[in-house]
Simulated scan of single mutants.
Amino acid sequence: MESTLNSELLASMLKSKRGKMGLRDTATEIGGISSATLSRVEQGNLPDVETFIRLCNWLGVSTETFITGEKIEAADISEKEKIVFQLRSSRELDTDTINAMVHMVDMAFTKSKRNAQ
């Protein structure tokens, strides 16, 4: 079975975690990558191996999370991340609508965590 990198999932998770933080601030926080590189990866371009590992470390997920063709444990990706990925990969919704819906998902999961405590 051939393995490939799921760049759409990577881009979605990066955008989701970065939120409203600027590209430069995020790149500085990650360390060892430029804001231009981060922007390219968020647009779906493939990073080099070293950058990919840095991004996975920053996201707090295993590199296998983004490898298609490999069996991935469902626990590696949260329910919220799955929803955000689906929204960000939509070809029918405009960016403003997607961002508004992602914000609503964030609020729902934040409220859910507070209610569980």
Rank of each mutant, 00 (worst) to 15 (best):
M1F: 02
E2Q: 08
E2Y: 05
S3P: 04
S3I: 14
T4V: 02
N6H: 13
N6I: 03
E8Y: 06
E8S: 05
L9D: 01
L9V: 00
L10R: 11
S12R: 04
M13W: 10
M13G: 03
L14S: 02
K15M: 13
S16E: 11
K17S: 05
G19N: 04
M21K: 14
M21S: 13
M21H: 00
G22W: 02
L23R: 12
R24G: 00
D25A: 06
T26M: 14
T28L: 14
E29F: 12
G32H: 07
S34M: 05
S34Q: 09
S34K: 11
S34A: 07
S35K: 08
S35T: 09
T37R: 10
T37S: 15
L38D: 05
S39R: 13
V41N: 00
V41Y: 12
E42K: 02
E42S: 03
E42V: 07
Q43W: 01
G44N: 06
N45K: 14
L46E: 15
P47F: 05
P47V: 03
P47K: 11
P47G: 09
E50R: 15
T51I: 14
T51F: 03
T51A: 14
T51V: 15
F52E: 05
I53R: 10
I53H: 04
R54T: 01
R54G: 01
L55P: 02
L55T: 03
C56P: 06
C56R: 02
C56Q: 01
N57P: 00
N57K: 12
V61G: 08
S62Q: 06
S62T: 10
T63I: 14
T63E: 13
E64A: 14
E64K: 15
E64C: 04
E64G: 09
F66V: 06
F66L: 01
I67V: 15
I67Q: 09
T68I: 14
T68Q: 14
T68E: 14
T68M: 07
E70Q: 13
E70L: 12
E70V: 15
K71M: 13
I72C: 13
A75Q: 11
A75G: 03
D76E: 15
D76W: 13
E79G: 10
E79F: 10
E79Y: 07
E79N: 07
K80H: 10
K80Y: 06
K80L: 05
K80R: 15
E81L: 03
E81I: 07
K82G: 10
K82C: 12
V84M: 00
L87H: 00
L87Q: 03
R88I: 02
R88L: 11
R88F: 09
S89Q: 11
S90Q: 02
S90V: 11
R91K: 15
E92R: 08
L93P: 08
D94F: 03
D96C: 02
T97E: 13
T97C: 03
T97A: 12
I98E: 11
I98M: 07
N99G: 00
A100Q: 13
V102E: 04
H103Y: 09
H103K: 15
M104L: 09
M104Y: 01
M104R: 09
D106I: 00
D106H: 04
M107C: 08
M107N: 05
F109K: 10
T110M: 04
K111Q: 15
S112E: 14
R114W: 11
N115A: 09
A116S: 07
Q117E: 11
